[in-house]
Simulated scan of single mutants.
Amino acid sequence: MRTPRPLPAAIAVVAVAAVAAVAVWRPWEGSADAAGGPPQITVSRSQCGQGWTDAKAGRQTFTLRNTGDAAAEVDLVEVGTDKVYGEVEGLGPNTSAPMDVQLGAGRYAFRCLIEDTDPITGPSVTLTGEAKSGPAAVAVTKNDMLPLVKQYEAAVASGVADLAARTDKLKADVDGGDLDAARADWLPAHLAYNSLGAAYDAFGDFADKIDGADGFHPLEKGLWHNASAGDLKPIADGLADAVHGLQADLPDEQVDPNDLGLRAHEIMENALQFELTGENDQGSGTTLNTALANLDGTARVLAILDPVLKPRYPDLPQVRKWEDRVRALLTAHQNTLVTQLDQSTREQLNGAVGELLEKLAPVAAICEVRRSS
């Protein structure tokens, strides 16, 4: 429901999806040092995964060299389990990129995913030794994610219907000149929107019309700074119109399966940046309430992703632990201005959200759809 942000040209990512770290490299020109540098692995339609010599277990770096004429993605997989131990994306023709991995004893192979070509698996290599394997994740397929996307879309549609009812009530308050009622109804409507998890332009142009420069925020400012009903009427009317426009547009929108994993982290990232700092407060003093609604949105996404995450992410219980900790802190301080929190509470809250974000960081990598056949 957002326009995907394009990856920068030729980004190389080694996905360590089972722990809270994702390392990023950019491809570089050149080749491995022939006198003992990293093994140079060929990436092409005719020679996928060639060049792995002196195979051994442990920490090691490969140089992936695309000798073909099309961009490629390269995975290092365990033969038999299909676990992905390393990944490089956007490797352009005649470019190279390093892949750093930790491998235990077992059989491995490079898989080349080249544009307009079925996946190609190179020769398998057997490693021996006592070293333990590093993080890995079983590849998630589009078939794994599509039912979850449908659940998410249904949840969003239900949430937008509730939002429409609440913004209609808010509009009626303002149109009728009852600003006390409007102040009482503003927060439930605003929380209904923020619990949808509308992070990073999830709703396109509707996001600004509802909760950006237009919509809820100028309405909040006017309601808590003595604006007249006449001045607020066009804002409330525009807000309601935008919500109904979003509702009408939803059936025509499609969620990219990869966006669902991103959403889990980005919702709370937004909360940290805009709500826990008080930046978004326009007078109501309710940014901590909004952060709690953002946490609800995160929890909804995680619940939907649970079938994919549970068998792939050992730290998922830690996500639940820190989610509960953040929820307890935000619940205890609802309706409190951020600036009125004492230093100890602010440190506890910021620390808990930071830990939660760290545990959420691998979710996008784990849930990324990968071609394997």
Rank of each mutant, 00 (worst) to 15 (best):
D180C: 04
A165W: 03
R370I: 05
T345E: 14
V160S: 12
L329C: 09
C367S: 13
Q247E: 15
G104A: 12
A161P: 04
A299F: 00
E358S: 14
D252N: 15
N226R: 13
T298M: 15
T81W: 10
A199F: 02
G354L: 07
D82S: 14
A332Y: 01
T63F: 04
L292C: 08
V301K: 05
G51V: 04
R107F: 03
E78H: 02
L262P: 01
N335G: 10
T290C: 06
L260N: 04
A155E: 12
W25S: 13
E73R: 13
F110G: 06
D205M: 07
N258P: 01
G283D: 02
K233W: 04
Q47W: 01
V84D: 00
R312A: 01
L349T: 06
C112S: 11
N258E: 02
D214C: 05
D315I: 02
D69Y: 06
E323F: 04
L187P: 02
K169T: 08
A15E: 10
L305N: 04
C48T: 06
H244N: 14
P234E: 00
R320P: 04
L239W: 12
L187Y: 02
T128K: 13
P27L: 05
L316G: 12
D162Y: 00
Y85M: 02
V43I: 10
